[in-house]
């Protein structure tokens, strides 16, 4: 079995199973805990419902916080959008998703894919540089750095494979798939779960504050 066979076969297979099981395990294991009750009378009868707006409104920090947050926010957005577009826009990725789900859509030309991948990687670098240069602000843990590496690897190996830099293409492709497999398997057990938590976390706070008539 070549490295590529291993990557495309057992590795990605196992990682996807871990991903699916892990995400659901962690979501259910947390969300099925007891629910606390706030018995106090809400400020206005249907007001609590408005709390759900926080899920969306928190997408951008309020201008009060601009000075301290704009760099992080912009870079994080650039990273997330570029990465998302790379993940769903590049033809090999679409083929991969199609084979899993059956869904298919037109891809982006390669030069755009490469540009987006590069932008994603650069924004990720911009984020780590700031994290390293402002330790007091971030209170980074080992986990933060491990996560950064695991997220950066697929981008790096993907770009290298495309550009035929480094090892032979099939080896780079295998490494790229393996790094994605690592990301999949790591995701449910790391802070990357924020991809799901953000909805619940924001909604909860939104509801708790809306109960008191406060828009957050």
């Amino acid at each position: 079995m070549t490295l590529l066979d291993f990557a495309r076969g057992p590795a990605i297979h196992a990682s996807l199973i871990i991903l699916a099981a892990g995400i659901v395990l962690r979501l259910v294991g947390v969300l099925a805990l007891t629910r606390g009750a706030d018995l106090s009378r809400p400020r206005d009868a249907f007001g609590n419902f408005k709390g759900y707006r926080t899920v969306f409104s928190r997408a951008w920090p309020s201008s009060e916080f601009n000075a301290a947050t704009v760099y992080q926010t912009v870079m994080a957005y650039v990273f997330h959008i570029a990465t998302l577009l790379v993940v769903i826009g590049i033809v090999p990725h679409i083929e991969f998703i199609t084979s899993l789900t059956g869904a298919s859509w037109p891809g982006l030309p390669n030069f755009i894919g490469v540009a987006l991948g590069t932008i994603a990687l650069v924004s990720l670098l911009a984020l780590i540089v700031r994290r390293l240069s402002k330790p007091a602000i971030y209170n980074s843990t080992v986990g933060d750095y491990i996560t950064w590496i695991i997220v950066a690897l697929p981008l790096l190996t993907g770009l290298m494979a495309f550009a035929h830099v480094g090892f032979r293409y099939e080896t780079m492709l295998a490494l790229h798939i393996l790094s994605a497999a690592l990301l999949f398997a790591y995701m449910p057990f790391s802070k990357l779960m924020h991809a799901f938590w953000f909805i619940f976390s924001r909604a909860q706070s939104g509801l708790a504050y809306a109960h008191k008539g406060v828009r957050i």
């Binding site: 969300l31 805990l33 629910r35 916080f65 947050t69 992080q72 971030y138 802070k191 938590w197 708790a208």
Partner: peptide
């Protein structure tokens, strides 16, 4: 004291550092 709400909050922090300068003590 820990219900699902607290658990979700504890699970959610991504160490993004946005909150630090929002606190008057920091």
């Amino acid at each position: 004291d820990t219900n699902a709400d607290e658990a979700v909050w504890l699970e959610s922090c991504i160490h993004c550092g946005q909150c630090t300068n929002a606190c008057h003590y920091f």
